[in-house]
Design a protein around this nucleic acid. Structure first.
Lengths: 337, 337
DNA sequence: TTGTATGCGTTATCAC
DNA sequence: GTGATAACGCATACAA
């Protein structure tokens, strides 16, 4: 009742294990007859090659690592599902590795993680994915990786980018089409490329439409609910009040709604609010939130597809396909001026 | 510049690799002198044993699997962090495996998952953890597992239980202390033990306090936001209206708030609302939600601790410790009658 | 097209 | 206490 091995298959089909190995790995130089015979025995026995032995012999583990540092939990879940859908088909498994992006030794820790478990390749989520240093270290160690990011900051083979700039441009057009002229922004931390991309994509298009966002209408948040509250207070005590606040994520937008509620400012009647992410909150909160949704799951599938292709040496195949565009979700928190 | 192996260590320290192996695995029969010498070489070389080779030889993978079916994403994230904290210390890795609890072959898939990757042990989350069939199958295959659940339905070595019944009893006392006498419930699906536990824990204590919950005040939801909306409508058109609605999770409680808002019923002035989970929503929504919080991360750590202890053969050590108690989080959505 | 022999890095069985 | 040597299950250079 033990797990059948390649030897069992070889014995049952009356060939050498070398030939069985060829069938397992889809080598071409096996006669159709023997291939079919062996395949049948494999099916009968329910044989599947042992990952560890296989890995040891070929120095691969069939393990893909997922590196992240505390983005919104929903984001991670969507990513995992996207990645796993592809992994399952290709007989890879997913090993998760949260890390502390801000700590000094996080790069070292990631490398250790890879070498400890012989991880074949890495998928890296934002904001960790923005680290040049990590990418450089991985390259040096010849560790394959794919980054998920909001900016095109690597070879197209090694990255999946969501075009936040374009999405924010769309948002700007939408808000102007509603008649708004006085627009404020709670940006993300400026040390993140993603924050800059969104801010610039937004403001650039606005100014093309002759809407200016003066400096006092732009405050920098920390992407947390609490910082959303702080920044909202800062903006909403200004006279005149802005007509619109765009926050870099839904968490902060929720903070804006909270403050507006406290100050008795009706949303969207006197203030329109927009977030980014379309997380769980966005549709549940009252009023529900107009926001921007990235196609996270399909981005993750794409990333998995790319990394596995790289592992199989089909690099060229996936080089072109790397860009996805988020889209606007219009709900109750925005209204004509 | 290659990764050092046990042979390198053996050569450098002038002993056989068998002895090095003894040191690595903390065997007792090595003289203190040689042990220290070898340890020093290990440190110098930065040697760490290869998981694959180790696994192949000892038939262990140092991989722990996490099985779940789509609970709230935040829950999964908390679990992963709790588990990984322990895993990291013990040099285990975590492999995630979402599955479809309702599909016929999910048990088979789980078993395959374990055998494909030589997973050493499984941590199973609710609601999958409530499956007797899965547990039975794992036992038969002698696969180690720990279930996380709301009901004590296995050997204490194999389970971590949150005492939802006790927590709901506390909630009942709290609501009665506020002076409420007309209380309604949106339960979870009755096919889940957890739903039953919460419902019974709640109603039993209420009736001990002379508060009765008549059948028409109890409706069965599906734990989703949408079903929360439906059930809330059903309850809130009744005359007289209930003073309190307890929903089996925060998602459904959010649905209740939505309906109350639509119907112009002020919360908590005319209706108190309580959820369960303390998910992200609970603190962000307006009014913020009184709810029950399970110590998910520490439950997960405990589960990881238990499974690793089992793998190391220290079963007895962790048998007693299995029960944790959720506690009430009082926020804005409840008020004296 | 198929088979033989060797190695991957560890643990485990013995004997010394 | 310590050390040869054989597994573990597979992949792969090299033959045939």
């Amino acid at each position: 009742m033990k797990k059948p091995t390649i030897n069992d298959v070889a014995f049952q089909s009356g060939v050498s294990k070398r030939t069985v190995s060829r069938v397992i790995n889809g080598a071409s130089n096996v006669s159709k007859a023997t291939r079919e015979r062996i395949q049948q025995v494999i099916d009968e026995l329910g044989f599947s090659p042992d990952k560890q032995a296989r890995g040891l012999a070929a120095s691969r583990s069939y393990l893909i690592g997922l590196v992240y540092d505390n983005p919104d939990a929903l984001y991670i879940d969507q990513v995992q599902r996207g990645v796993l859908e592809i992994c399952a088909k290709q007989h890879y498994e997913l090993v998760v590795h949260p890390c502390s992006y801000t700590s000094d030794d996080f790069i070292e820790k990631c490398i250790q993680f890879v070498s400890r478990s012989n991880i074949d390749g890495l998928i890296i989520l934002p904001p960790v994915s923005e680290s040049k240093e990590l990418a450089a270290a991985l390259r040096e160690k010849e560790i394959k990786y794919v980054r998920m990011a909001s900016v095109d900051l690597d070879d197209h083979a090694n990255i999946v980018v969501s075009d936040d700039r374009a999405a924010l441009s769309d948002l700007a057009k939408y808000l102007v089409s509603l008649g708004h002229k006085d627009i404020a922004v709670i940006s993300g931390p400026k040390r993140y490329y993603s924050s800059i991309e969104r801010l610039e994509g937004f403001c650039t298009t606005l100014s093309q439409l002759n809407v200016d966002v003066p400096p006092h209408r732009i405050v920098e948040g920390a992407n947390s609910y609490e910082s959303g509250i702080e920044c909202a207070r800062e903006l909403l005590i200004q006279t005149p009040r802005p007509q619109v606040i765009f926050a870099n994520n839904d968490e902060m937008a929720a903070g804006v709604l909270k403050v507006a509620h406290e100050m008795g400012i009706p949303v969207p009647q006197e203030l329109s609010v927009v977030g980014f992410d379309d997380n769980l909150l966005a549709s549940r909160i009252i009023p529900s939130l107009t926001t921007v949704r990235r196609p996270v799951t399909s981005m993750a599938s794409l990333a998995a597809h790319k990394i596995i292709s790289m592992l199989k040496g089909k690099k060229a195949e996936v080089e072109e396909n790397y860009l996805v565009k988020p889209h606007l979700i219009i709900r109750e928190s925005t209204k004509k001026s």
